[in-house]
Simulated assay, not measured.
Amino acid sequence: MPIDEKLITKEVLNNTLAREVYPEVKVISEPMMGKVRTVYDIGDQKMIMISSDNLSTHDVVHKRQVYGKGENLDAISGYYFEATKHIVPNHLIEILAPNVWLVQKAEPILVEMVFRKYLTGSGWRDYEKKNGPEEGSKFCGVELRPGYRRNEMLDEVIFTPTGKGQVKDFDIPEFQDMDPETDDPKITIDIIRRNYKTFGLRQPEDLDYIMEKAFALYTFIHEDLREKGHLLADTKWEFGYMPDGSISLIDECVTPDSSRFWKVKDYLFNPEKNEFNVVQDDKQHFRDYVEGLGLHAVERKAELAAHLMDDEILKQGVVKYCDIREEIAGTLPVITTDPRKDAVLAALGDGGFLR
């Protein structure tokens, strides 16, 4: 049953969980803050992850949050971590509260494992720029045949990795003549293998293991989502080394923030445009809003960071996140005006993680 939109009042929209550091948590080192999550090293090779309701688009964290966003994304991740642990282990130990996870500490591998089953986004732009429709092209070292249309399903799932700062911060021979601020370097499997230590791998063969597991993950999840009315156009995963040296899936798994979801029923070929129509079920709703205001340009980042999103846009986002969570995980959040931070601290206190 869809979320009752009447429950999403102005008071609820303002009852969000902001990203912050809780000094009450017992830690052995300084907490690490990302765009959405704050991570606490509590010792004994374990960490606490707290997901806020922060929203980011165009590499900017917005001033207003989206009620329940962190909880909804965690519910989807938690569902797929449980559903795919027969394929690859993951770092989740226990869900302490809807926004609070206890996880195994990992040494991150510095490659974002991006997998695509449809030619869209940056993949399509690169293909079109290189006259791929007529001649074919390469994308991140992967050969693409000629004849694809925008948003078309690829002949097979492809791996198009991206790095996490290596182009700018590390000396990789293939990129030595590039300007990281203006160039768009494409990382390939061969580049990762030749520079495996730079990418946080302990041995080149570990990349083969990760790719094998990630391809299996994509196949399993794409089919699961299709049965629920969605297509997984592309997604990204992160992996890390556990204390015993094994490799596990970490961070999140197939959420609207890390993936493109399309509605199956709307995926139809449009002969007039010579492309496939898609209706997205991810955070494209917010990207479109920002681009409609013209705030997506790099030189307007400060304006975007200061901009206050309208209540109606936020409410639509709440509904979208709740709907896709229900369709995937079969659950809905509790809509409340009770202080969300209090619930987080109560869960941490019950677990004995506070000073």
Rank of each mutant, 00 (worst) to 15 (best):
Ile313Val: 15
Ile221Tyr: 07
Asp251Gln: 00
Val319His: 01
Asp310Cys: 07
Leu314Met: 15
Gly294Trp: 10
Leu308Phe: 02
Asn277Pro: 12
Lys228Phe: 11
Ala214Pro: 09
Lys341Tyr: 00
Thr336Phe: 07
Arg226Met: 10
Asn277Leu: 06
Gly352Phe: 06
Ala329Leu: 09
Lys320Gln: 15
His222Cys: 15
Val344Gln: 04
Ile250Arg: 03
Phe276Arg: 04
Ala329Asp: 05
Glu238Trp: 01
Phe286Gln: 13
Arg300Glu: 14
Asp323Met: 07
Ala343Phe: 07
Ala305Phe: 03
Leu225Gln: 07
Val290Arg: 00
Glu326Tyr: 15
Ala216Asn: 06
Leu232Lys: 07
Arg260Ser: 01
Asp342His: 14
Pro271Phe: 12
Leu295Trp: 08
Asp350Tyr: 00
His285Arg: 11
Gly245Phe: 00
Glu223Ala: 10
Asn274Val: 04
Glu312Arg: 02
Asp310Glu: 15
Cys253Tyr: 00
Gly240Asn: 04
Phe276Thr: 09
Met211Cys: 10
Pro271Cys: 12
Cys322Gly: 13
Asp257Thr: 06
Tyr289Cys: 13
His222Asn: 12
Phe276Trp: 15
Leu293His: 15
Tyr289Pro: 06
Asp311Asn: 11
Gly229Arg: 02
Gly330Asn: 12
Thr337Tyr: 06
Ile335His: 06
Gln280Phe: 06
Pro256Tyr: 09
Arg260Gly: 04
Ile335Phe: 03
Trp262Tyr: 09
Ala343Asn: 08
Ser246Cys: 13
Gln280Glu: 14
Lys320Arg: 13
Glu252Lys: 01
Tyr289Gln: 06
Asp257Val: 07
Val319Phe: 01
Cys253Glu: 02
Phe239Gln: 01
Val319Thr: 14
Phe276Val: 09
Val319Pro: 06
Phe353Tyr: 13
Ala297Ile: 09
Ile335Arg: 13
Val278Ile: 11
Ala216Trp: 03
Phe215Pro: 02
Asp224Tyr: 00
Leu217Val: 13
His222Gly: 14
Ile335Leu: 01
His296Val: 11
Ala329Gln: 14
Ile313Asn: 01
Val278Asp: 05
Lys265Asn: 14
Asp234Val: 04
Lys315Ile: 14
Val290Leu: 00
Lys236Ile: 13
Gly317Ala: 01
Asn274Pro: 03
Ile328Asp: 10
Glu299Leu: 02
Leu293Glu: 06
Ile313Gln: 12
Asp266Tyr: 05
Tyr241Trp: 11
Met309Tyr: 12
Thr336Lys: 12
Ile335Tyr: 03
Glu327Asn: 11
Gly294Met: 07
Lys301Phe: 01
Thr219Gln: 12
Ser246Met: 05
Phe239Ala: 07
Leu308Asn: 14
Pro271Glu: 00
Met211Glu: 00
Leu225Tyr: 13
Lys320Val: 10
His296Ala: 15
